[in-house]
Design a protein around this nucleic acid. Structure first.
Length: 227
DNA sequence: CCAGACGTTGTT
DNA sequence: GTCTGG
DNA sequence: CCAGACGTTGTT
DNA sequence: GTCTGG
């Protein structure tokens, strides 16, 4: 699955990577946790739009926005059918801006976190996009909360030793198809929801400091040796 | 008809 | 154990 | 995802 | 909102 991730790329780099019409305001995040604000990219009439939204999709019909707390991920295999996700799957697809994610390995000794990313030719973290869905919720008082969820798929061979699910990472050449608001048939985009190629990903173990969502500093991304 | 659910994960 | 908050 | 709370009363 | 269960 994907319950914690990073976005440490500069606003300029993000604007270039996603063809944004304006450079956004973004600060580096080393430990993004559910319910926090996350940057998503949508296709609008005015071009590619970056928005901060609540992580945890709140269905428009939810009586209580707390419902979003359990909707941080949607299974790619079933999102087109699930009542909470299917409308968004048809009409409100987005890219979740990131450059890595964490998964926890359960062992007899406890849980060990690992960081996963897509290195460039010099081994640096590349900007990546998770396939996402977004929604707007409005309270009786007129309070509006935009929110989003991250689609998950089967783990590739890089992730499998740690966990059996991973976020869907979209290659840049597929951004336009995934975002296309004129394509309202989810069946026409489900072929994009594949595990990212194993060979293009890298991983290392990290400190359990990342467990605490209040931690958010570069040191979280230092590789540690396992005993 | 109305009431109640609507999700993923992991663990057992 | 289970729910809420980050 | 993990961390942290989980309750009522009365008083300040 | 929309579907399922009673």
């Amino acid at each position: 699955m994907c319950g914690r991730y990073t976005q440490t790329q500069s606003p300029e780099r993000v604007a270039t990577q996603f063809d944004l019409s304006a450079v956004p305001e973004l600060s580096p995040r080393y430990n993004i946790a559910p319910t926090q604000g996350i940057p998503i990219v949508r296709e609008t009439d005015a071009g590619r739009d970056l928005q901060m939204v609540h992580w945890g999709l709140i269905p428009s019909w939810a009586k209580d926005p707390k419902m979003g707390a359990r909707m941080i991920n949607a299974r790619a295999e079933t999102a087109a059918e699930k009542p909470s996700f299917r409308t968004a799957m048809r009409r409100r697809r987005c890219l979740v801006v990131a450059d890595g994610f964490y998964e926890w390995q359960r062992t007899a000794k406890g849980k060990q976190p690992f960081f996963f990313y897509v290195p460039d030719t010099e081994g640096r973290r590349s900007p990546i996009a998770f396939a996402g869905l977004w929604e707007t919720w409005e309270s009786a008082k007129g309070e509006v909360i935009p929110s989003a969820t991250i689609l998950t798929t089967a783990a590739n061979n890089r992730v499998q030793p740690v966990h059996d699910r991973m976020p869907v990472i979209l290659p840049a050449e597929h951004y336009a198809r995934w975002l296309d608001p004129d394509c309202q048939q989810s069946a026409k985009v489900t072929d994009l929801l594949q595990p990212f190629p194993t060979d293009q990903m890298a991983t290392f173990a990290v400190s359990t400091a990342v467990n605490n969502p209040r931690q958010d500093q570069p040191e979280l991304l230092e590789a540690i040796a396992l005993n």
